[in-house]
Design a binder for these strands. Structure first.
Lengths: 237, 237
DNA sequence: GTTGAAATTAGTACGAA
DNA sequence: TTCGTACTAATTTCAAC
């Protein structure tokens, strides 16, 4: 189990939760959508936007929080303004049976913002934010190199973060499918507004765009599977 | 300019902001730290935790928001509970001079949660969240393959998200450095609390841990530079 | 930049549909 | 379950210091 799944809520008290919890209906999803785009909205305003009563909104809000469907509320910071203008991805190959140590060491590195275990050539990807490129070098050669669990690393720099979206819920999907189908009929629309949330009340046809013939030869697409024994390694972390 | 830097605040009105904006002092940083771990805290409680008056907290809070240092407030959702249990990373090689189109198409794919332009073998990394593995396949072969800008892709699956931290501010760094130095003197402390925010008032010695002899041969560490002409390509997106 | 008081709003508890 | 209302507590705003 990951740290994320173990302690979903920072500072919250509902640790060790197991089981499916509550079933999320469409109203729950609407609440999550609103909360993702504006985490500081008042419950009263939330109720109005979702179209339910205030009391109901309070009940569902608390349920989502307690259930863990909402893990936490956070402010997205402009890292450049905060003095951490350099972002890098470090792909790490981890020595077998040493995941636990790797994770423990990760927890001690505050410059690590995100870490995921992946299939493919490497075992994990970590994202770090630091003040300058020298700090990346220090991070990799001094900090990561001192972890016995780390077998090898590969570092790339992030030049630009094009997109970071909070609109990732199944309901968006249906909407996009409809838009895509419409586009397929009417041609491209370059001026589309990517992040505009206004479509919450819009109709969401469920048509799916059919395959239209690719520009990329399928041979150039690689799906990279897990390295040997990766699945087993997940358990001991 | 990326979408992120162009429209920092979702739904906000302060678009098109240029320039350095306000200088962030230590109090601003404290505010950001608190807000990252609890985006729904009241300004009154925030003032108390930071150790300033309410009026001051309101002023600074608004300044940070208007300046764009706080881009938005959002709720972190448990994607598994929300029905999007599969996360994948797709590394994309983009055809030169077609970044603009690539970005426009990305904006139409709601399953894309994050996209960054990187140095290294590929040009961009996108993170997608979908309901099942088949959807990843569909996404890559049907959606991405139809974008002329996409030359090639490589897909890996995320097996587990070990860490997602909101505690990424320069002030954390000094604290961690002090901890690291202390550890170097007193031995490892496996039971350390990674995400515990309580250390806000703690002393932050600025000592840096010196290099202690690596376990990883330096030859196994790769820093991957930008592909040819990448810097130029950034401008036209 | 701080404190204190007024106005507004948020959160809670209840009965009714 | 959900809604509507009334009640209590808290927050935000605005003033003077």
């Amino acid at each position: 189990m990951s740290e994320i799944s173990r302690n979903g809520v920072a500072g919250g008290g509902q640790a060790g939760r197991i089981g499916i919890g509550l079933e999320l209906d469409e109203t729950h999803m609407k609440i999550l959508e609103v909360l993702r785009e504006n985490g500081r909205i008042s419950v009263a305003a939330l109720a109005e936007r979702v179209g339910i009563s205030r009391a109901n909104a309070y009940t569902r809000f608390e349920a989502l929080r307690a259930d863990g469907a909402i893990k936490r509320f956070t402010a997205e910071i402009d890292h450049v303004r905060a003095g951490l203008g350099i972002t890098a991805l470090i792909f790490v190959t981890v020595r077998q049976q040493m995941w636990k140590q790797f994770r423990a060491e990760l927890a001690r590195m505050p410059e690590v913002e995100y870490c995921a275990i992946t299939t493919g050539q490497h075992d994990a990807m970590i994202q770090v934010r630091v003040s300058d490129v020298a700090a990346v070098h220090t991070m990799v050669t001094d900090r990561l190199a001192n972890i016995p669990a780390v077998k090898a690393t590969e570092t790339v720099f992030i030049l630009d973060e094009v997109l970071r979206r909070p609109y990732v819920l199944p309901s968006d999907r249906a909407q996009a499918r409809g838009q895509a189908a419409a586009r397929a009929a009417s041609g491209p629309q370059p001026g589309a507004q990517p992040g505009a949330p206004g479509g919450a009340q819009a109709a969401r046809p469920q048509r799916r765009p059919e395959a239209q013939g690719g520009d990329v030869p399928l041979g150039k697409m690689r799906f990279v599977g897990a390295a040997e024994g990766r699945a087993a390694l997940r358990k001991d972390g």
